[in-house]
């Protein structure tokens, strides 16, 4: 484009350019001063507080942190496994629940009621209670063949609860697809099942990817709750170490490890969403 006709900016445009550059420089200086002031104040308050030395020793003990790091990491592997296996199960169950709840098929009426009740119960009850009820209730039944493995029971509890959350997210996506899309598909002769499969669901899922991925990050964090059953995950590993030495650095290590996964994950997710919407920036996407 520019190599066809040689162009040099007019005097007026050069002045504008200088003005813009000055403005940019001024903005950077203001941002810098503001940052130094705010962060400086916070660190000053923190570092001059009377208890800072003891907090530093009990929460930020670098040597102790290094020592407990391997055990916390081993615990974190449990959280990750739980998240991945649970995530797949949640996806399948939630999709089934969402489809059942939106179906109009008369044959599926009882299942529609069951799905509604299921979602009401597991979305409404605190996750930690479900974990306790499943974790201690199921073994108490003493049914032959039922597992007493706390990792399995903890995973089941998390899956039960998260399926209800995710089902509602997927359902809201299904309902957000405009009626005219269904009309267009049905008028082409697609059956209601084909319409759901090829027209409604793909658009619905795309729209709810951001909330779904948020739920995925929450899931990773909430797998830490199964530690109350005695599962040696990252939280539990930190707890064991901390209660042994009365030094809370393991908790900070665990927190940092969780953040090391969740922050890049959310950034990656945001990027994928942005790329996806650039490729196909349609009304079908938020």
């Amino acid at each position: 484009m520019s190599n066809t006709t040689p162009w040099s900016p007019s005097a007026r445009e050069r002045e504008r350019e200088i003005y813009r550059k000055n403005l940019q420089a001024r903005k950077r200086v203001i941002a810098l001063i503001s940052t130094v002031l705010v962060l400086g104040t916070f660190s000053a308050i923190l570092l001059t507080s009377p208890g800072w030395d003891s907090v530093k020793a009990t929460f930020f003990d670098l040597d102790y942190g290094k020592e407990v790091f391997p055990t916390v990491i081993r615990g974190l592997v449990v959280n990750i496994q739980l998240t991945l296996i649970g995530g797949v199960a949640i996806g399948i169950i939630a999709l089934a629940l969402a489809l059942l709840k939106t179906t109009k098929s008369p044959a599926l009426t009882p299942f529609r009621f069951i799905a509604t009740a299921y979602i009401d119960i597991f979305r409404g009850a605190p996750l930690i209670l479900i974990i306790l009820l499943v974790g201690f209730g199921v073994p108490a039944l003493r049914i032959q063949g039922l597992t007493n493995n706390v990792i399995v029971l903890g995973t089941i509890a998390v899956v039960l609860t998260y399926s209800a959350y995710v089902a509602e997210v997927i359902r809201s996506g299904i309902l957000s697809v405009h009626q005219s899309q269904r009309a267009a598909a049905r008028s082409l002769g697609l059956t209601s099942r084909q319409t759901m499969r090829y027209v409604v669901l793909p658009q619905a899922i795309r729209r709810v990817i951001p909330p779904l991925l948020n739920d995925f990050v929450s899931l990773l964090k909430d797998t830490g709750l199964v530690s109350i059953l005695g599962v040696t995950d990252a939280v539990r590993a930190a707890q064991i170490n901390a209660s042994r030495t009365f030094n809370y650095t393991p908790y900070v290590v665990a927190a940092i490890l969780f953040l090391l996964i969740t922050i890049p994950l959310t950034r990656f997710i945001d990027r994928q969403i942005r790329l996806g919407s650039e490729k196909q920036n349609s009304e079908g996407l938020a």
Partner: peptide
């Protein structure tokens, strides 16, 4: 066949996929 005022193309499919959906599935 019906054509609507607001087109109602499927936004998640290319034009070719929009056109071939019914011939393939139906």
């Amino acid at each position: 066949g019906i054509v609507f005022q607001s087109f109602n193309l499927f936004p998640h499919m290319t034009i070719r996929e929009n056109i071939t959906l019914a011939p393939i599935k139906v």
